[in-house]
Simulated assay, not measured.
Amino acid sequence: MDRQLSELLMEPGGEFENFTRMSLADFEYLLNIVSPMISKKDTSMRQAITPKIRLAITLRYLATGDSFKSLHYLFKISSEIISRIVPEVCAALNKALKDEIKMPSTTDEWIEIEKGFRDKFPHAIGAIDEKHVVIKCPDHTGSEYYNYKRTFSIVLLAVVDSKYRFIFCDIGSQGRISDGGILRNSVLWKNICENKMNFPPPCPLPGLNVDLPYVFLGDGAFALSENLMKPYPGDHKLNTPKRIFNETLSRSRVLSENTFGILTSRFRFFKKPIELMPEKVTQLTMTCVLLHNFLMKSSSSKNIYNPSGTLDKCDNGVFIEGAWRQEVPQNCGIRCVPHIARRSPISATKIRDNFTEYFVNLRNK
């Protein structure tokens, strides 16, 4: 298999990039940092599978979502061994790449995030989203994972910046928990409530004489709060203040949908309900997120399976789906969280109204 992989490296026309969803340079970089953690010793009975093959198997699995049996035919390694290799390599990648996701910890770092949103939604410091990672119920599980559809989900809670990179990621809450409860049970929400985030202090926007806080942008699945803006519920007429606010927010937070679009286009592991135990799905999902951030910063891999120019956008209040959605099957293993109506705190409602006043004034200039 080493010889076959070497031949693949020599193929013209991007064959290696198609195989692993990354450039050869990035593959070799990852191989260098994880080799000490995934190397095995030869025995008197057989030679150990090399780190290069172990990494290639894992990346191929994440890139295609092929079954272990299919990978057995490709790599000539038993399905049982592949089923052990993939989690071991993912654990090594998670350890090596753990710093690829980093929440800002200072006011200056939050301001840098805000600069990417400033032209569309000033004081925004990230787009927040929740996705259900759907799992096919493993055999012989109890009622905790069973329902009549034979599937359940874990939830991926994430905050992304304007460069389609994750700055926070929490994976593993069961999808049956209320969606508002997922955020409120997270470390992120705990730190917000305890004022540990070091957000920039509230300040006025041009033309307003009231201080407005820095906020995350969410959709209807979230509860409105002083640091999280969501759309006004209902269908509002064109050019009314609430419609103007909703359009502005949608144009800004489409970043999170596109980030998940790039993730699922690059890692077809998510193309259908995943037939693994939830602990492994959590681990492998984190690997995909870390690799996504690593590859988005890479000059040689950034545009490999990154559907640049074919992303979602919002034009005059009309949502236009990007072409990436056609690359991802309808029964994709990552699904949206439903919108749920909730009563909002008066203070948060007032903040949203103040943002609305700013956007209305801006449009009327």
Rank of each mutant, 00 (worst) to 15 (best):
M1N: 13
D2K: 12
Q4R: 12
G13P: 03
D26G: 04
N32R: 10
N32G: 10
I33V: 14
I33F: 05
S35R: 12
P36W: 01
I38P: 08
K40C: 07
D42N: 15
S44R: 12
R46N: 12
R46F: 09
Q47K: 12
A48K: 03
I53E: 08
R54V: 05
R54Q: 13
T58D: 05
F68G: 05
K69G: 09
L71S: 05
H72F: 07
E80G: 09
S83W: 00
V86G: 03
A91T: 15
L97H: 04
P104R: 01
D108E: 14
W110S: 05
W110N: 01
I111N: 03
E114Y: 06
K115Q: 14
F117S: 03
R118C: 09
D119K: 13
D119H: 07
K120Q: 10
K120V: 13
P122C: 02
P122T: 02
H123F: 03
A127Q: 01
I128Q: 00
E130F: 09
E130R: 11
V133Q: 03
V134C: 07
C137L: 12
P138G: 04
P138K: 05
D139K: 11
H140M: 08
G142D: 08
G142H: 03
G142P: 01
S143G: 08
N147V: 11
K149E: 14
R150N: 15
R150G: 15
S153A: 10
I154T: 04
V155E: 00
L156E: 02
A158R: 07
F166L: 09
F166E: 10
F168R: 11
I171Q: 12
I171W: 13
D179P: 04
D179Y: 12
G181W: 03
L183P: 01
L183T: 00
N185P: 02
S186F: 10
V187R: 13
W189R: 14
K190R: 15
N195G: 11
P202L: 01
P204C: 02
P206Q: 06
G207T: 07
N209D: 15
V210E: 13
L212D: 02
G218R: 00
D219N: 08
D219I: 01
S225M: 00
E226R: 14
E226Q: 12
N227I: 11
M229D: 00
G234M: 05
K237D: 12
P241L: 08
E247A: 05
S250V: 02
L255E: 14
L255I: 14
E257R: 14
N258T: 04
G261V: 12
G261D: 04
I262T: 07
S265M: 09
F267Y: 08
K280N: 15
K280D: 13
L284K: 00
V289I: 15
V289L: 15
L290M: 03
N293Q: 04
F294S: 02
S298H: 07
S300Q: 09
K302L: 06
C314P: 05
D315C: 10
N316K: 15
N316G: 11
G322M: 08
R325S: 06
Q326G: 07
E327I: 09
V328M: 02
V328G: 02
Q330M: 11
N331H: 10
C332M: 06
R335G: 09
C336Y: 10
P338L: 05
K350F: 14
R352M: 00
E357S: 11
F359M: 07
N364R: 15
